[in-house]
Design a binder for these strands. Structure first.
Length: 152
DNA sequence: TCAATCCGAGCGG
DNA sequence: CCGCTCGGATTGA
């Protein structure tokens, strides 16, 4: 029986990376300067934090099987596609937009709505002519792409 | 309605 | 190569 109390994991990197979990679902993740206290009760979170630590050491880790929540129907559709982009690869807003028959701008909106950066790798979506934006800061996006060995 | 978006293309210098 | 403008889909107010 999963706990009702939210769990929290914190991984050290350039900034700390925090993920909040409830009932085996990652509900939110974010970067912060602060140190955040971890609360881990479940096997699931134990496993997740191990994988995150490996990821931030630069190892290739796949988060595709991790349950997450999507804000809206549309953004969910877009973010599902984004989850399909593998470690070290990038796609453009334009490209994704064509796949879901929408506009690049709308894809940008959907990226911004992503509750769980890194787990859903929206940093792998870049502009056609540059790195594009990132709600956690473009600097963070650059560092993540560098971590994955992507040359822009 | 309307403004705000992690964009892209087109145009005039 | 710049900077500006506009089309554009979606969301939340």
């Amino acid at each position: 029986m999963p706990t009702q109390i939210p769990e929290r994991v914190c991984v050290e990197w350039h900034l700390n990376f925090v993920a909040e979990i409830r009932n085996g679902v990652v509900e939110r993740s974010y970067f912060t300067e602060r140190d955040v206290e971890e609360t881990i009760f479940s096997e699931f979170s134990e496993e997740l934090v191990k994988r995150l630590r490996r990821y931030f050491k630069g190892r290739e880790v796949d988060f595709r099987d991790v349950p997450v929540t999507y804000p809206t129907d549309f953004s969910g559709r877009v973010l599902e596609i984004v989850r399909g982009i593998s470690f070290g690869k990038v796609r453009s807003y334009f490209d994704i937009a064509n796949e879901v028959k929408t506009s690049p701008r709308a894809v940008g909106v959907a990226m911004k709505m992503n509750r769980v950066p890194v787990i859903v790798p929206c940093h792998r979506v870049v502009a056609r002519n540059g790195i594009g934006g990132y709600s956690c800061g473009v600097g963070v996006k650059r560092m993540l792409l560098e971590l994955e060995g992507v040359k822009m």
